[in-house]
Design a protein around this nucleic acid. Structure first.
Length: 668
DNA sequence: GCCGAGCCTTTTTTT
DNA sequence: AAGGCTCGGC
């Protein structure tokens, strides 16, 4: 047995050495899944399979990057570097860049992220809705996304408003040569299903396919996989149905629970020995998840008996909860020399992080917020990014309109409106309108000059941007200088700190652009733009590594990670399970989310909830999460923080509180 | 065309 | 609480 599979347990080894034919690895939390997948890839390479024939698809870019590292370490001679790795979306983007013409796009298409989709949808709704009618752009987009992911056709636009919106949106996207995330998958599937030549090319290119986090794939991704993998189906999927938490995004848990319906006679390997957590943590997790119906039966166990019980803490309000966590972390750091990196706080919604950040800052505890509001959502970054996008594809109206008068250059709403009208009339992009003499004749001289100056700048830099080997950082700096963007920001800023924040944002952006070009010399601007929209790594890779401190992260983003000491605050009715999950019938998924959170912890786990929480500036009364009532108490210590903090907590008070708590939980 | 004041809603999660 | 959007004065 080769070295890298020698340290695996029998089940792990079975999975890692099975190469041909469909393989389903059911890997519970903490069972060494990533290790098995990487060992398997190393094993394949060792068996003589060319690394460039191996395709590994992960759920996030972070996971892809991590896997790349580990595969690289396991293989000789830098062979691991040649393995093709990425998310489904990134894979499709690459594919479509290569074959864009086959699906009716030009190669310089731009990928729209959410905010751009919303802008476009607003425009669509504006043009379609009559006076008092209103439709929420986000809801309209959600509806379209769902339909696309289910492979539904657009209905009759004449009969149904929603169909009309969907059609108009699709037409606009195509006209602007832009795609959204769903389009990447849809068009990727279309390309593979309908074009035998392309399909054959890809079969030759990717002969062994591995998909990680398979429980989170949707039906389009399954279709893509099926088109990508011909008989005898050299496909390996890895996942855990108990950790399926992306149903709201169309994930089909049946992809994994009914895998054999898609790929016949798969070899199924179960990994059940957990190497991460203590028995107390696992036992508690198991007692929770067994309340879900329709699972693949599975029982996790651990050799690590540990000694720390799980704690369930009640706090008065969110402030007290945050302070408790901060104080404990501080104490752990000073008393037990526990580094801040050992701690993580996992929460349901992003806005829960704010109060924690405040508490940490007060105590000078270093922390990092993973996956919070995107760096690329910041105004200064968005502006410059829009410039670069327009240089790449000037027909992208949304990006163009964003920068048309940013910085203010005398092209106001009236002119923009006119240009838009002209472009619609002529069935072409706003950019074409701006360059069109017959349009320019219609507007006052002042505006005309402003527009001419603008189009000139764009043309000038567009040619630079498309020239191979241009230093993009230098170019962008020159562009920023030429349009006097900094001056504009300075004027815009209400406080000097605000301006400095923007300055830093820009510096960081240019830094990332430089890093990108360092790494990737051949793909140029379009490669960078793709990466920016597809990459969920809000911070630079090195940054996450380098930046030390307590990890603040959403439950969703925490999947796949582990920490010695974990806090799960805000375990309240309406937060977890989130109140909207009731309406949407997704309470089971919330339970899995809780399960994911619990199983992130290696040694010590603290669950907490509060009685009062401030939301939108208002204090609200909270109830404990009904999930807390489902936890088996064998290894759970319950305590009340408010009383604990008093000098002499009277026995009576404690008893009363717990009686009350029990009563509350019993109601559920 | 520009800019500030005030009003209003909001994301649950992410590729 | 805070960012986005509209309206009205310049």
């Amino acid at each position: 047995m080769s070295g890298f599979t020698g340290t695996l347990n029998p089940q792990q080894r079975e999975a890692a050495t099975h190469i041909h034919g469909p393989l389903l690895i059911l890997a519970g939390a903490g069972t060494g899944k990533t290790r098995v997948v990487t060992a398997r890839i190393a094993f394949m390479i060792n068996e003589g399979i060319k690394p460039e024939h191996i395709l590994a698809v992960t759920f996030t870019n972070k996971a892809a990057a991590e896997m790349r590292e580990r595969v690289k370490d396991m293989c000789r001679d830098g062979m691991g570097k040649k393995v093709v790795l990425g998310t489904f979306h990134a894979f499709c983007a690459r594919l479509l860049r290569e074959f864009a013409e086959h699906v009716g796009y030009k190669k310089n298409f731009v990928i729209y992220s959410q905010s751009e989709q919303i802008s476009l949808m607003k425009r669509v709704l504006k043009s379609l809705l009559v006076k008092e009618e209103t439709l929420d752009p986000q809801k309209a987009l959600a509806r379209i996304s769902k339909a696309k992911n289910n492979g539904e056709e657009i209905g009759d636009p004449a009969m149904d408003l929603h169909a009309a919106v969907a059609e108009k949106y699709a037409d606009e996207m195509r006209a602007l040569n832009v795609m959204d995330f769903d389009d990447l998958l849809c068009l990727g599937v279309k390309l593979l299903e309908e074009n035998a030549v392309v399909r054959e090319t890809l079969h030759q290119r990717h002969r062994y396919v591995t998909v990680d986090e398979f429980q989170d794939t949707n039906s389009l991704q399954m279709r893509l996989l099926r088109a990508l993998v011909p008989a005898p189906y050299n496909v390996c999927v890895v996942g855990d149905d108990d950790q399926s938490i992306y149903g709201w995004r169309g994930a089909e848990i049946t992809n994994i629970t009914e895998f054999e319906n898609f790929f016949p006679d798969p070899t199924v390997v179960k990994l059940e020995e957990n190497y991460r957590s203590t028995t107390a943590i696992l036992h508690t997790a198991n007692s929770l998840i067994k309340n879900n119906a329709g699972r693949r039966p599975k029982s996790l166990w651990s050799r690590n008996s540990g000694k720390e019980p799980v704690r369930l803490v009640a706090a008065q309000d969110d402030l007290e909860e945050a302070e408790m966590i901060a104080k404990e972390i501080e104490a752990g750091y000073f008393n037990n020399k526990e580094p801040y990196e050992s701690f993580a706080v996992l929460f349901r919604t992003n806005d829960q992080s704010r109060i924690l950040e405040q508490a940490f800052r007060q105590r000078k505890i270093t922390y990092r917020v993973v996956g919070a509001r995107s760096f690329f959502d910041r105004r200064e970054v968005k502006d410059v990014l829009s410039y670069l996008t327009v240089l790449h594809n000037p027909h992208d109206d949304i990006s163009l309109l964003r920068i048309l008068n940013t910085p203010t250059r005398g092209i106001g709403g009236t002119t923009a409106e006119l240009a838009l009208e002209h472009s619609m009339h002529k069935q072409f992009s706003v950019w074409v309108a701006l360059c069109d003499e017959s349009f320019l004749r219609q507007i006052p001289e002042k505006s005309r000059n402003a527009v001419r100056a603008f189009t000139e700048v764009i043309c000038k830099y567009a040619s630079a941007a498309s020239t191979h080997g241009t230093d993009l950082v230098t170019m962008t700096e020159a562009l920023i200088g030429e349009v006097e963007y900094m001056k504009y920001l300075q004027k815009l800023a209400k406080k000097p700190e605000e301006f400095h924040g923007w300055e830093n944002g820009l510096a960081e952006f240019l830094n990332q652009l430089g890093n990108y070009q360092e790494r990737n010399k051949k793909d140029g601007l379009s490669g960078f733009l793709d990466e920016v929209t597809l990459n969920d790594e809000r911070e630079d890779k090195d940054d996450i590594e380098k930046k030390k401190g307590v990890c603040l992260i959403t439950l969703h983003a925490s999947k796949g990670l582990e920490f010695p000491i974990v806090y799960l605050p805000g375990l309240e009715q309406g937060i977890l399970p989130h109140k909207r999950s009731y309406e949407e019938g997704r309470v089971d998924e919330e339970r899995r989310l809780f399960y994911v959170g619990i199983t992130r912890a290696r040694q010590k786990l603290t669950l907490s909830f509060v009685r009062y929480r401030t939301k939108w500036g208002q204090k609200q009364t909270e109830l404990p999460s009904p999930f807390l009532g489902e936890l088996d108490r064998t290894y759970v210590d319950e305590m009340d923080y408010t009383m604990h903090m008093k000098e002499t907590p009277s026995q009576e008070e404690n008893t009363n509180f717990f009686a009350g708590l029990k009563a509350m939980l019993a109601q559920e």
